[in-house]
Every structure is written in C-alpha cells, then in structure tokens.
C-alpha cells in the first residue's frame, strides 16, 4: 500500500528515473554491439587472440561493479568525469562485452563447415560469406548474447547511482540511506520489471531476426 502511495506522490520522478535507466542501458548496449560483434567475428580467424580476448572479458566480468566504479574514479577524474554517466556507461559497456563477444565468436565458429566449404568453393569472398551466410546463421545466438547482456546490465546500472549516474538505483540508494522502505521497493521492483520487459522484447527480436529457414 505504502508503495502505491509513494509512486503516486513521485510519479514523474519514477518515470524520469526509469527513462534515465533505460537510456543508459540502451546506449551502453549499442556501444557494446558495435564494438563486441566485430571483435567476436575478428577473433574467429585467430585462436590465440580469441583466447586472450575472451579471457580478458572474463576477468572484467569477475570485478564487482562497485569496485569497477571505484577503480575508474581516479582514472576518469583526470578528464573531469570521475562521477556521473560516463563511468557508468563505460562500466556497462565493459560488462556487456563478454556475452556479446563470446556468443558472436561461438555462433560464427559453429556455422556448419560444409556451408563455409560450399560457399568458398563457389567463389564467395570471406566478406560475402560472412555477410550472406555466417552472420545470418549466427544472428539467433548473437541476440541471445545481447539478451543476457541487457538483463545483466539493467541490474548493474542500479548500482551506478552510487557514482551519480542516476537511474532507478537512485531510489534504492536514497531509500537505504533514509530507511525508506517503499522507496527501496519502488527502485528494486522498477529494475526487475524493466529487466523482464527488456528480456521479453529481446526474445521477440530474436525470433523476428532469425532467418526463416533456420527456425526449427
């Protein structure tokens, strides 16, 4: 009940924070895609590089988010961006890279070698093969990676409120500081709801973008 009253009183703030949250996650995901997918494709050509890149992305994943913000603070402070959206987005991008790179890598690697053989034998260039065969076939697995990344960084973005990035984490952070139960709940439920909605949307996208002949 208290929660509803709280939301009623703070509706515009809640909507703004949700929008801010979504915006941060969206931008981070976008940056992660345009960097991660090409990296994932590139490393399919070089096994050693692949191990290093995926290993590196794995290490980043193991750093607790709060610690990552702490680590970035002095570095980004040099440019005057120690706090706020910049460190938040950098962190979210870094966390997204692993599922995106790994899934892209695995998806391209798993394309049936017979198809690659047929394509090359018919005279396709590497680029044509990638564009016409490997990437379309890899799409479902790549999007599954995006889905994992999206849901994960929606959660992590809540912690970004501690470095002043805004988003629904603000309710959680302030709610804890003030022992305001409804406020914490509003933030937490908001983040969860966002994650569920985005997950459903990505699932829809996954089905839509899967090439017709590949669907089971």
């Amino acid at each position: 009940m208290n929660l509803l009253i709280f939301l009623q009183d703070n509706l515009s703030t809640a909507l703004f924070l949700t929008w801010e949250h979504l915006w941060m996650v969206g931008l981070s995901l976008f940056i992660a895609i345009i960097t991660g997918v090409p990296i994932g494709i590139l490393i399919t050509k070089n096994r050693q590089l692949a191990q290093k890149v995926i290993g590196g992305a794995n290490v980043i994943m193991t750093i607790p988010s709060i610690a990552l913000f702490g680590l970035m603070l002095p570095l980004l402070a040099v440019f005057g961006h120690g706090l706020g959206k910049v460190p938040a987005i950098i962190a979210l991008v870094l966390y997204s890279e692993l599922p995106i790179i790994r899934n892209t890598f695995i998806a391209i690697k798993n394309v049936d070698p017979a198809m690659v053989d047929a394509g090359r034998g018919m005279g396709m260039t590497k680029w044509q093969l990638l564009r016409e065969v490997e990437i379309p076939l890899a799409i479902p697995v790549i999007i599954a990676g995006l889905r994992t990344a999206a849901v994960m960084i929606i959660g992590i973005a809540a912690i970004a409120a501690y470095v002043g990035a805004g988003g629904l984490g603000v309710f959680i952070q302030q709610g804890i500081a003030r022992s305001h139960e409804s406020m914490v709940l509003a933030g937490a439920l908001g983040v969860s709801l966002l994650a569920v909605v985005v997950d459903l949307f990505m699932g829809f996208l996954e089905r839509r973008l899967t090439p017709k002949g590949v669907k089971a």
Partner: peptide, 8 residues
C-alpha cells in the same frame, strides 16, 4: 554434405 545455405 550438400551445404545449402539454410537462411536462403
């Protein structure tokens, strides 16, 4: 293995 492209 035939190697038809399943997406086409």
């Amino acid at each position: 293995q035939i190697g038809l492209f399943p997406n086409k």
